[in-house]
């Protein structure tokens, strides 16, 4: 099961990013756990400066915006 973390200090775009990833995962019937990471210290460790950012199984895959549907689908496959 993929562990997905959405990094962000709590802005509305970050929750939207987490919601859309969960929604698409459900559509594709992919089992995932999506968590929101708001700790500045953890975000710093991933060297992310633009939020929301997405980390899948500890790999940073995206940063700076709500990800596009096509990107999310490709990460989940």
């Amino acid at each position: 099961m993929k562990q997905i973390k959405v990094l962000g200090t709590g802005c509305s775009k970050c929750s939207k990013a987490a919601d859309i990833i969960e929604k698409i995962a459900a559509e594709l019937r992919q089992p995932v756990t999506v968590t929101k990471e708001t700790s500045p210290e953890v975000i710093m460790q991933y060297q992310v400066m633009r939020t929301p950012a997405v980390v899948i199984d500890d790999q940073l895959v995206h940063s700076g915006s709500i990800p596009l549907r096509a990107d999310i689908e490709s990460w989940l496959k």
């Binding site: 962000g8 200090t9 970050c14 500045p40 975000i43 710093m44 992310v48 400066m49 633009r50 939020t51």
Partner: peptide, 10 residues
């Protein structure tokens, strides 16, 4: 401005 913390830390 919602990125100011990550930018500060970066």
């Amino acid at each position: 401005s919602c990125s100011s913390i990550p930018v500060f830390l970066g």
